[in-house]
Computed example of a mutant assay.
Amino acid sequence: MNLELLNRGLGAQKRSAIIWGCALIALTISVLAIWPSMSESGSLDTLVGGMSPELIAALGLEGFGSAAGFLNGNLYALFLPLLFAVLGIMHTNALTAGDEDAGRLELLLALPINRLSVYLSRFVAVMLVLAVIATLVGAAVGFGAPMLDMDIQVTGVVAATLGVFLLALFHAALGFALAGIGLRTGAVLAGSLGALVLGYVAYALLPMIEALESLATASPWHWALGNQPLDNGFTGTGIALLLVGLLFLLVVGLVAVRTRTIRTA
Results as ranks from 00 to 15, higher is better:
Ala140Leu: 06
Met147Trp: 10
Leu169Trp: 13
Leu3His: 09
Gly103Trp: 12
Asp151Trp: 00
Leu254Ser: 14
Asn74Phe: 06
Gly63Gln: 14
Leu87Ile: 04
Asn2Thr: 07
Leu80Tyr: 00
Arg104Cys: 04
Leu107Cys: 02
Ile181Glu: 00
Asp101Asn: 08
Pro229Ile: 08
Asp151Ala: 14
Ala110Glu: 06
Glu210Ile: 06
Val201Ala: 15
Ala168Glu: 01
Val255Lys: 14
Gly9Pro: 03
Leu10Cys: 12
Gly144Cys: 03
Ala177Glu: 01
Leu196His: 07
Glu213Met: 10
Glu54Leu: 12
Ala216Val: 03
Gly182Lys: 09
Ala58Tyr: 03
Leu87Gln: 15
Gly253His: 02
Met51Val: 09
Cys22His: 01
Leu83Gly: 10
Arg104Gln: 09
Ala218Thr: 12
Ala12Met: 15
Ile34Met: 14
Val126Leu: 11
Pro207Trp: 01
Leu242Phe: 03
Ser66Ile: 01
Met90Ala: 14
Leu136His: 04
Leu243His: 10
Ala224Ser: 13
Ala159Arg: 05
Ser219Glu: 02
Ile113Glu: 11
Gly180Val: 05
Gly11Ser: 10
Leu243Gly: 12
Gln13Gly: 10
Val158Cys: 01
Leu105Ile: 08
Leu241Cys: 11
Leu206Ile: 04
Leu6Met: 05
Phe70Cys: 14
Val158Glu: 05
Ser219Leu: 07
Val201Met: 09
Phe143Ala: 08
Leu205Ser: 14
Val126Ser: 06
Leu225Lys: 14
Ser43His: 04
Gly98His: 05
Gly42Met: 01
Ala202Pro: 07
Asn74Ala: 13
Lys14Tyr: 06
Ala265Asn: 09
His171Glu: 09
Asp45Thr: 11
Leu189Lys: 08
Phe234His: 13
Leu78Lys: 10
Phe170Ser: 02
Ser37His: 02
Asn227His: 15
Glu210Trp: 04
Pro146Ala: 07
Phe248Arg: 04
Val141Arg: 07
Asn114Ala: 09
Leu167Ala: 10
Ser52Ile: 08
Ala68Gln: 15
Ala97Met: 00
Gly65Leu: 11
Thr259Leu: 09
Arg8Ile: 13
Asn227Arg: 12
Gly186Gln: 05
Gly142Asp: 06
Val124Asp: 06
Ile19Gly: 08
Ala94Cys: 03
Leu166Gln: 14
Leu189Asn: 15
Ala159Ser: 08
Ala85Arg: 01
Ala204Glu: 07
Leu95Val: 02
Phe176Cys: 03
Gly73Ser: 12
Ala17Tyr: 03
His222Arg: 15
Val118Arg: 10
Trp223Gln: 04
Leu71Met: 07
Gly194His: 11
Leu55Ala: 15
Thr261Phe: 05
Leu189Ser: 11
Ile113Arg: 15
Gly226Cys: 13
Ser66Trp: 02
Arg263Cys: 00
Asn114Tyr: 09
Ile29Val: 15
Trp223Asp: 05
Leu47Glu: 15
Leu242Asn: 00
Ile34Asn: 12
Val244Lys: 03
Ala172Arg: 00
Leu249Phe: 04
Ser66Thr: 11
Gly60Ala: 06
Leu246Gly: 00
Ala168Ile: 00
Ile133Asn: 13
Tyr76Thr: 02
Ile29Glu: 08
Leu206Lys: 13
Leu105Lys: 08
Val188Lys: 00
Leu61Ala: 15
Val31Lys: 01
Leu27Val: 00
Thr46Pro: 02
Leu116Lys: 08
Ala68Ile: 03
Leu32Glu: 06
Phe165Lys: 11
Ile133Trp: 12
Ala97Pro: 05
Gly226Met: 14
